[in-house]
Computed example of a mutant assay.
Amino acid sequence: MASIDYYLGTISPYVYLAGTRLEEIAQKHGATVTYKPVDLMQLFDRTGGIRPADRHASRMEYRAQELQRWADYLGVPFNLKPAHWPVNMAPSSYAVIAAQDAGGGNLGALVNGFANAVWAEERDISDDAVIRDLLGKHGFDPELADKGLFIGAETYARNLEQAVEAGAFGAPFYVVRETGQRFWGQDRLDFLDRHLASL
């Protein structure tokens, strides 16, 4: 059975566009997924990327066109300029980490819920009330928003180091542990699917 490390940023538009396709692919192949939220801005800094605020205008203009194209293609609502972006990723990331440790809910739906809240619902995912609401909606104890903050911070920092070591440099980023094969971007999920089918 394959094991997938999923490096993600809860505010990433590409994580939003990925939806729950990773979970569907993993289920089809009997693979397990370990969710590893990371600070995307630090990941960019550490791996030669450029933060969106510092990118050339031509790159950002193309990004805007491409994001809208993908949203239209996938048939999902998308707000190119959400009210709460960028926003501190740490609180929602700690919630994902705590939920993964606690179990009992739908972790893939929770991750998608945070991204959906940013890019389709105009919600602030650094707000405690929003985090509690999303935890509850996806089968987790809303109190996890306040539990394990120290462990969450430690894991969040460790995830960044592991992402760099694994060769990740953006999000969503999928690494198949058994083979070392890496897949960057929601538009590479079909290749991940094909790879898992070959194992």
Rank of each mutant, 00 (worst) to 15 (best):
A95H: 04
P86L: 01
P77Y: 08
L135H: 06
W119P: 00
R132V: 10
A102Q: 08
D133R: 11
P86K: 06
K81Q: 15
L134M: 06
G103L: 04
P91R: 02
R123F: 01
A83L: 13
R123M: 10
L80M: 12
D124I: 09
A117F: 09
A90K: 12
A102K: 10
W119F: 14
A115H: 04
E143R: 07
D101W: 05
I125D: 06
F78H: 03
A83G: 14
E122F: 01
D141H: 08
E121L: 14
G105D: 01
S93E: 07
Y94L: 15
L134E: 08
K81C: 03
D141N: 13
L135W: 03
F140M: 10
R123D: 07
D128C: 05
A90G: 06
P91C: 03
E143P: 00
D146Q: 11
A90Q: 14
L110C: 11
F78A: 08
G113Y: 06
L74D: 02
A83T: 15
H138L: 05
A109I: 00
S126R: 02
V76I: 14
A99I: 03
A83V: 13
L74V: 05
L80P: 10
D146K: 12
V118S: 12
A95K: 06
L135Y: 00
R132N: 12
V96C: 05
G108A: 12
V87N: 08
Y94H: 13
A98Q: 06
F140E: 07
G108Y: 07
L107Y: 12
A83Q: 13
Y94A: 12
S92L: 02
K137F: 01
A109G: 00
L80N: 10
A99K: 05
E143Y: 03
G136W: 04
G139F: 11
H138E: 07
G75Y: 10
A90F: 11
Y73Q: 14
E122R: 13
R123E: 13
L74K: 15
D101E: 15
D146F: 06
E122P: 01
V96M: 03
P77C: 12
S92Q: 04
P77V: 10
D141W: 02
G75E: 02
N88L: 09
L74F: 15
I97E: 06
